[in-house]
Design a protein around this nucleic acid. Structure first.
Lengths: 339, 339
DNA sequence: TTGTAAGCGTTATCAC
DNA sequence: GTGATAACGCTTACAA
């Protein structure tokens, strides 16, 4: 059997000797005479019919696609999220489009605008920074958007947020319980939401254990990367003698471990180290890294769920979910009794 | 201005007071009277027009989408590839759909079949195993496919392959130059293409430096993961005394570093360690990991290029690109003079 | 240069 | 239950 063109529903209808309407009904499992139905399905099988995605989308106004836009896939936090989202989406019969926004916040606005092309049914967005233009774009988006991150209270958009403030504070509490009193912070860029939140958490943590903050103990890395963490740590050590360092994420912390090694400072004996995000990396590096689990995988999972719910009932009030943080002790800042 | 529905090209045509044909031409930059063109663009701007992706695809028979299907996004090798592909695709104005196939090879066949729905213009597939059914599916795929990996010579499909065989051999050469004579292999599942190739490379490497192979020095991990690498290493050490270990990938190697530490064996003095893939992880772990760079990022980049070329000229003869491997020395198996 | 109209492959609304 | 037929929003011959 040589077929010139790919079979369409018309082909199927012809082979089954029914109208294309009946063919469509049979194929979509709509009430049909069992015998007709059988003929149609057999015909479809025979000619190797597959529905054309674009045609179906055009008519049904649904693409069967969702998108996830984040900073950079290569960052382990986002890989985890992608993996998680992928899984839930697949279960729901949706495909996933990936969109890396990179360092440029304009890209986040661009994809929100592009939603007008209706190439996806919905978007999960993890912005690094939220401006007024972001909020405006979010509110006028052509498709449902779920934000992984923090938004002003009054913005009516579904969000899933980490409790990085309380998480950072918990880490400080732990370090304090370990007897550390000169606790430094190596933060990422503070113009970003995580950077902002994590500093607040650090300061709140210090206050709640009765420690004061000290400018010299805070160092800001230009990016949330290992290299940036390494050099930031070197700078920090050149002017201060911390007995513990909280890093704003695991990548920074792993870079920091390298710098501490270079400086001949033992971890955790001389300097305890804590990361944030509790990525795979924390279990893999040496010494293993204590970290604050911000529930990345779970946030991602819930984001999809929220999106699915929103697609089903667009009118429902927006939801705002916050995932609790959890300190995970490993070798770089062990449980007090293990010391 | 309250708009009930999203504007279509008809809306634009009405506002500009031209036919929809003229509107379409103006919007697509086709030869048009400058004044008309201006009116149309102004109208489009005014009503906030964006073309409907599905409608455009249906008509133009192009989705503007490509897909990348691989085992697991969370694996650093694939994250790198995704990142790389993403970048090239974006530059070419294409969006990227991600498809994790997981452990199940059936999923690879499924996505090849699904190509019949024409939801993407092309696919980049990185299969873990290649069966006859794969080849059949590849040859009858409804859209162009580029394979990252190895295929039988006579299969007319674009491929980009790593030279992991020569890469593994190079690693053995390096270890031999370091004076190591009891060189073990911790491989991943040997039913997979990488597993198969890497064992061959290991054996070839031993031969070319005049060493014999020894069953007790080969251990097979059930997966290409750090945990699997750790336990496989423990098993290996329980029966043999290698002075060097080649791991089939970096994740296995990082797990192995942990096991060696547990066993009190110093790296690299007592046991030198080499990974493969040269992922980010190799620079981040401790001691830093010597690894065989198989050009993951470049393979991915070239795969997209091949796909783009294929989309442009479907008739061209299939290409087969092989990326050379490169040994990268770090602390776990340093340059001989650094010892 | 511009407009008319056909058609891309579906789904869904009608009468029958 | 089934079959014409009209959309869905766009591009592109072809005619004017």
């Amino acid at each position: 059997v040589t077929r010139q063109r790919r079979p369409t529903i018309t082909t199927v209808a012809e082979v089954a000797e029914v109208s294309i309407a009946s063919a469509s009904r049979a194929l979509n499992g709509i009430q049909t005479n069992p015998e007709t139905r059988a003929r149609v399905l057999a015909a479809a099988e025979q000619v190797g019919y597959m529905p054309h995605a674009a045609a179906r989308s055009l008519r049904s106004r649904q693409s069967g696609l969702i998108a996830f836009a984040m900073h950079d896939v290569a960052n382990p936090v986002y890989s985890t999220m992608v993996s998680s989202i992928q899984q839930v989406a697949t279960e729901a019969g949706l495909r996933l489009i990936l969109h890396s926004t990179g360092a440029d916040a304009e890209n986040e606005l661009a994809i929100l605008r592009d939603l007008g092309q209706r190439f996806v049914d919905g978007l999960i967005l993890s912005p690094i920074v939220v401006t007024d233009r972001h909020i405006e774009a979010l509110l006028s988006a052509a498709a449902p958007v779920v934000v992984i991150g923090r938004l002003p209270r009054d913005v009516a958009v579904d969000t899933v947020e980490a409790d990085s403030r309380r998480g950072a504070a918990a880490a400080i509490g732990h370090l304090h319980a370990l007897g550390r009193r000169r606790i430094a912070l190596v933060n990422g860029p503070e113009g970003t939401t995580p950077g902002h939140e994590r500093r607040l958490g650090y300061l709140a943590g210090l206050r709640s254990v009765g420690l004061g903050s000290e400018r010299a103990l805070i160092e800001i890395a230009p990016a949330f990367t290992a290299d940036a963490g390494r050099s930031a740590t070197a700078r920090l050590l050149s002017r201060a003698l911390p007995d513990a360092i909280l890093y704003a994420n695991d990548l920074l912390a792993v870079g920091g471990l390298g710098a501490l090694r270079d400086a001949g400072r033992f971890v955790p004996d001389e300097v305890a180290v804590v990361g944030m995000d509790d990525t795979e990396l924390a279990r893999l590096c040496f010494p293993t890294l204590s970290s604050v689990d911000l529930g990345s995988a779970e946030r991602a999972r819930i984001a999809v769920k929220l999106l699915l719910a929103r697609l089903k009932s667009p009118g429902d009030p927006p939801q705002r979910v916050r995932i609790p943080a959890r300190f995970v002790a490993r070798a770089s800042a062990p449980e007090p009794r293990d010391q």
